[in-house]
Amino acid sequence: MRIMHTSDWHIGRSFHGNSTLPALRGVLEALIAQVREHAVDVVIVAGDVFDSAAPAADCYTLLTDTLVGLRDAGARVVVTSGNHDSAARLGFQARLLREGIHVLTDAAAVGTPVTIDDADGPVHFYGIPFLEPALVRTIWPGVRTQEQALGRAMEVVRADAAARGGRSVAIAHCFAAGVDPTPHLERDIQQGGLDVVPLAHFDGPDYVALGHIHGRQRLSDRVRYAGAPLHYSFGEQGKPRGSWLVELDADGLADVEWVELPVPRPLKTLHDTFEALLTDPAYAEYETAWVCAEYTDATPQLEPMRRLQARFPHCAAVVHAPSAARRQDGRTYAQRVRHARSDAELFEAFLEHVREGEGATERERELIRDTVEERSLAEASA
């Protein structure tokens, strides 16, 4: 049996204010083509199908088109809910879906697998939706953390799999021990209650398909994260996008292969002076990329985003990152003004204050002197 393990589609997510739906549609169409090319039997989507609990209508359209496309490509589909999904909204139409598409969102049903047969017998797919401890205490009294909830769920899975016999696959959405976190995700983990789940909790199944981390991760031969199909933050740039192609034989796990997905628009962080970012030919290759521009000038630039987008139309973020630490003498603005002995020094005091210790450049001092002199002459002749 050939299984394609994917996760974290985050349908409806924006990227610095830009819709990702068109790019994601293209990537998911490529996934459908890969399923057909590799004669995949089952596609797993391990949670975070949507990016929010209340997705827009066009998000449902993309999901429907993709599920139908995967089924038409010859694969059965098993989908579970993640912490970004609303289990109720994702699962409400489960019984209405066409044969071969399974959406598993009920925590009470983790011990009831989707069983799919191949030439070597049955394979039991146990879908574990995101388990919110407060909501599963009625099922497993005493559960206080997600780690405890996953532990109880896997006990149920192992017991049922042992009774049924044959091979098994578990699907979960969590933060497992040993994983390298996705940048900027740790805060969401703490606020969402996703504590670390020990790897030993996943003992038993022939393969464990995990979701939640946006980069591919191999925790063991049989426990892996597939990551997201798109880059959703600059912290993810450079990380490959794709899915795991898992092969089971009569004895269990036989092979796992990484299958790359196309990257519609690469991400690049550029770090240089503002002038170099605007003019250096070395950056020409990034003019069609998503760009995060970090300019190192000592002082902030006027309208940096507008000016950078003239060269990089897809510049999505601009950061002022001075290359040297600014001088700080501890003086307040009032103290700086009191010590100014002339109009020119008053200008200097103002610039040092707003620039956090960085005063006027030599050219600016010349302009200040000329302006002050012109003003003095005009007042004298009035």
Rank of each mutant, 00 (worst) to 15 (best):
M1V: 07
M1Q: 03
R2I: 04
H5Y: 10
T6K: 07
H10Y: 09
H10E: 08
G12F: 04
H16V: 12
G17P: 12
N18C: 10
S19L: 05
S19R: 10
A23H: 10
L24D: 07
L28W: 05
L28F: 01
E29H: 13
A30P: 08
I32V: 09
I32Y: 03
A33Y: 07
A33R: 09
Q34V: 02
V35T: 10
R36E: 10
E37A: 15
D51S: 07
A56K: 15
A57K: 03
D58H: 12
C59F: 05
L62M: 06
T64P: 01
T66E: 01
G69D: 12
L70K: 00
V78I: 14
S81F: 04
N83W: 00
D85H: 02
A88D: 15
A88K: 12
R89C: 02
L90A: 07
F92N: 06
Q93K: 14
A94S: 09
L96T: 02
E99K: 12
G100L: 03
I101Q: 04
I101W: 02
V103I: 07
L104M: 15
L104S: 01
L104Q: 06
D106Y: 12
A109R: 15
V110S: 02
P113E: 15
T115Q: 10
D117F: 07
A119M: 10
P122S: 01
P129A: 05
T138A: 15
V143N: 08
V143L: 10
G151E: 13
E155G: 14
V157P: 03
A159E: 15
R164H: 02
A170S: 09
A177G: 07
A177K: 08
V179M: 09
P183R: 02
R187N: 13
R187C: 15
D188C: 14
G193W: 04
L194H: 08
L194T: 11
D195Q: 05
P198Y: 06
G204H: 00
P205E: 00
P205N: 00
G211Y: 01
G215Y: 10
Q217P: 14
S220E: 11
D221S: 12
Y225T: 04
A228E: 15
H231G: 05
G235A: 09
K239W: 12
P240T: 06
G242C: 08
G242Y: 07
W244Q: 02
D251A: 15
V259C: 04
E260C: 08
L261W: 01
P262H: 11
T273W: 04
A276D: 12
L277K: 03
T279C: 08
T279F: 04
P281C: 06
P281G: 09
A282P: 00
Y286H: 06
Y286N: 04
A289L: 13
V291P: 10
V291M: 06
C292E: 13
T296S: 11
A298K: 02
Q301Y: 00
M305C: 10
R311E: 02
C315H: 00
V318G: 00
A325R: 15
R326H: 05
Q328H: 10
V337D: 01
H339W: 13
A340T: 06
E345S: 08
L351E: 12
H353D: 09
E358N: 11
R363N: 15
I368T: 11
I368W: 08
S376T: 14
L377C: 14
